[in-house]
Amino acid sequence: MHIPDGMLPGEICAAGYAGTAVLTWFCIKKARSTNEDSTIIVSRASVMAAAFFVVSWVHIPLPPVSVHPILAGLMGIILGWISFPAILVGLFFQAAMFGHGGFTTLGVNALSMGGAALLAWAMYRLLRRKQGERAILISGFVAGFAGVSLAVIFTGSVLILTIPAYIDSGTELSAILAMAAAHLPLALAEGVFTALVARFLLRVKPDMLL
């Protein structure tokens, strides 16, 4: 899911950084406009960024590729607007410590995963208008499923649109589609996981769900 250095043209990397800068500014501005205590926001963002950083370690072999959890949906429903900056920080450390992703592609990776988190959160809020555990389970599942699916769609689209002319585009396209298809079980699993976490938080600490 992380696009490494050297895979994207320079102008796409620059556009990714520009988009990420604008979206980070916008998200922080929106988060500050809420009435929530900034110390709570930062505390939550720190813990969730740690979780996001660590899950990239988990290797789930789904031939012909391997996948790892993303937690974009969970980040979205717990952090809301601040999920985007938190994912950006997590991605930076993943690139710096393990070489997952790259520094030139950090902006694009942040847009795909952070953007997926924001959209998953929006879907969750739409579905959560109804009260009760059933509604939270459904909205949590949709958020978790959408978090992975949208990140895969964004990343796959960027990769497909930027396949270099000198390589066999058919082979690369097939490999990208295989990678995307391999994420479907992960999306389902994260949907279930996010739904269960959302229900748990609803029972014990409902104010953690945004």
Binding site: A51, V54, V58
Partner: peptide
């Protein structure tokens, strides 16, 4: 998170 860190297999995707 801590338990996960201890038990997770150390694999990367680079």
């Amino acid at each position: 998170a801590v338990l996960f860190l201890i038990t997770a297999p150390v694999f990367g995707h680079g």
